[in-house]
């Protein structure tokens, strides 16, 4: 008991105070001390740069369709052109914007919903908890993909906002469940009882006493949700449920499939966006390895020690 305590103390001493900026920096530092997480962050960083500077980096306008259609890789079009005569590389670069946007916004929103519902579900008792329990279980048992497809079909034409809404509605329940069980274990801790004795309101206990103690879980739940959102967006656009004129990796796959790209030997049309989706999802998962180190100091003691 003495030993574990002194390890924790040593870990935190360097960090000093508890300002929000410090907390963020400490989190980032801990995450990046993990090798896998560094690789993930590098990949993610690359995609962010590409997404932000796509208009500058892309050789052509991604919607310009006045090139020869269905070309293979050439010096002018590194990844060839689509059946409609657009430059694949330019589309790929612009596509990063949509994936990142949907990933982070939808991932963030579903984490917020999960935190609000999960924490109150875990802290409150009685009728409210039972009611939340029913709703969450309902969302957990409904198969996600069919629900997504049905919702997307109904909200046809809503563009990105529609996709984000669909992903949030179908994606929060699992996170809420995980956060609830952690809340339940924290609520029985003495410092929570002590806060009741200090006259604190329930809301303040949940958000000022309990929530900060599960930040790492929330961060990891965010990266998980973002990964799921990116995959869901690609899936929906691949099925043609998104506005098919948006340029995203999913719609690129949709058009490639429509024009039988594999049969015509244009493997880059399928391969390039597919690889990007996989890489982006992988990068977030890798970052999550580093997040584990925040909550469990033993995981960050470095290599070769166990």
């Amino acid at each position: 008991m003495t030993t574990t305590h002194s390890i924790r103390t040593a870990d935190r001493d360097g960090a000093g105070g508890a300002g929000p900026l410090r907390v963020v920096l400490r989190f980032a530092g801990t995450i990046l001390s993990n090798g896998k997480a560094r690789i993930g962050a590098a990949i993610l960083g690359l995609f962010v740069v590409v997404g932000v500077f796509a208009p500058l980096l892309a050789p052509y306008d991604p919607t310009a369709n006045d090139f020869a259609s269905g070309e293979g890789a050439t010096a002018a079009h590194w990844l060839g052109t689509t059946a409609a005569g657009e430059d694949v590389l330019s589309q790929l670069l612009h596509g990063a914007q949509v994936s990142l946007l949907v990933g982070f916004v939808a991932g963030g929103l579903s984490t917020v919903v999960a935190v609000l519902i999960g924490l109150s579900w875990g802290y409150l008792r009685g009728f409210v908890a039972d009611a939340i329990n029913f709703i969450v279980n309902l969302f957990l048992v409904i198969p996600g993909l069919p629900l997504m497809i049905v919702l997307a079909a109904y909200l046809q034409g809503g563009g990105l906002i529609m996709i984000i809404a669909v992903v949030v509605v179908t994606g929060w329940a699992w996170g809420a469940r995980v956060l609830r069980s952690q809340t339940q274990s924290l609520r029985s801790r003495d410092f929570v009882t002590a806060a009741v004795f200090s006259g604190e309101s329930s809301a303040r206990i949940v958000f000022r006493e309990i929530l900060p103690n599960m930040l790492s879980l929330i961060v990891s739940s965010f990266f998980g949700a973002a990964t799921a959102a990116i995959l869901a967006e690609s899936g929906l656009s691949y099925l043609g449920l998104d506005d098919t004129s948006t340029i995203s990796w999913g719609t690129m796959l949709f058009w490639a499939q429509n024009s039988n790209a594999l049969l015509t030997g244009q493997w880059a049309l399928l391969f390039a966006p597919g690889l990007c989706i996989a890489l982006l999802a992988t990068s977030l998962t890798l970052i999550n390895f580093g997040v584990d180190g925040i909550s469990n100091p033993r995981l960050r003691e470095g290599k070769g020690q166990r």
Binding site: D190, F191, A194, F197, G199, N213
Partner: peptide
Amino acid sequence: HRDVQMVFQDPYAALNPLH
């Protein structure tokens, strides 16, 4: 609780580590 207060057994658990 304004008049009746409690001192807990485990001082390591009774203080929120982040405050």
